[in-house]
Simulated scan of single mutants.
Amino acid sequence: MDVVIAPEAQIGEIVADDIAALIAARPDAVLGLATGSSPLRIYDAVTQRVERGELSLARARGFMLDEYVGLPLGHPCRYSTVIDEDFVSRVDLAPGAVRGPDGDAADLDAACAGYEKAIRDAGGVDLQILGIGTDGHIAFNEPGSSLASRTRVKTLTAQTREDNARFFGGDVDAVPYHCLTQGLGTIMDARRIVLVATGEAKAEAVAQLVEGAVSARWPATILQHHRRVTVLVDDAAASRLALAEYYRHTQAHRHLVS
């Protein structure tokens, strides 16, 4: 696991560099797209490169991490709407190139199984973007989630609903109780994972992720078992890392080994 501590303003450019390198090597790469506030700087940086003609996602594809249950197509808080506004509509991805789980499906279990198959049929995710919740969840894998879980229906914790109420005009009662989410096992299948966290509110979750024991209590800790994970955090999110100075030292003296 690589830990990079950088100013928030630089994090988007760092991940955009990774995406650009991936697309240069494989124009039809599969991206794993997260919603929420954490990846917005990434999407802004990638969009700017597309607008300048430095990068094209015309052959790329994408899969979303999760979706609320019961929000109809076009609802402003439905994640398919959010990812379209935040990213898809701003770049040159082909129509239909980004897919999310269908939280409005009549048969939710079948929708989950179909989503898993779609990811497999696409060849899997090349680079997965993640955020992390204050309770250590990634996607909507809440504390207590199976570390081997696949895409499924989950019940959101009260903390997650409170955290997400800001997207629903501050009305926690408007936040759905259920979602469809990629499982931790599904996320671990990605060939490369980049997790972004900023702000002091994420500091405890980041400390557990990087330096804590692997446990379903802090679902993101499963990433310690992935062979290619980069954790990008600002100073505030890194404030509880006991080895923060070592991570800075490693970053400053990083070099390529042939």
Rank of each mutant, 00 (worst) to 15 (best):
Glu8Gln: 15
Glu8Thr: 12
Ile19Gly: 00
Ala24Asn: 04
Leu33Tyr: 08
Ser37Asn: 13
Pro39His: 09
Asp44Met: 02
Glu51Asn: 05
Arg52Val: 00
Leu57His: 00
Ala58Gln: 13
Gly62Met: 03
Glu67Met: 07
Val69Gly: 03
Val69His: 09
Cys77Lys: 09
Ser80Val: 00
Thr81Trp: 04
Thr81Ser: 15
Val82His: 03
Val82Tyr: 10
Ile83Thr: 01
Asp92Ser: 02
Ala97Gln: 09
Ala97Pro: 03
Gly100His: 06
Gly100Met: 11
Asp104Tyr: 10
Asp109Ser: 08
Asp109Glu: 14
Gly114Lys: 10
Glu116Lys: 10
Ala122Met: 02
Val125Gly: 01
Gly131Thr: 08
Gly133Pro: 09
Asn141Gly: 02
Pro143Gln: 09
Leu147Glu: 01
Ser149Tyr: 11
Ala158Gln: 14
Asn164Gln: 13
Arg166Lys: 15
Val175Arg: 11
His178Met: 13
Cys179Ser: 15
Met188Asp: 07
Ile193Phe: 10
Lys202Met: 00
Lys202Tyr: 07
Ala203Thr: 06
Glu211Gln: 14
Val214Met: 12
Ser215Ile: 06
Ile222His: 02
His226Asp: 06
Arg228Lys: 13
Val231Glu: 00
Val231Lys: 02
Ala244Glu: 12
His249Cys: 11
Thr250Tyr: 14
Thr250Glu: 14
Gln251Met: 10
Ala252Tyr: 01
Ala252Leu: 11
His255Leu: 13
Leu256Arg: 13
Val257Cys: 05
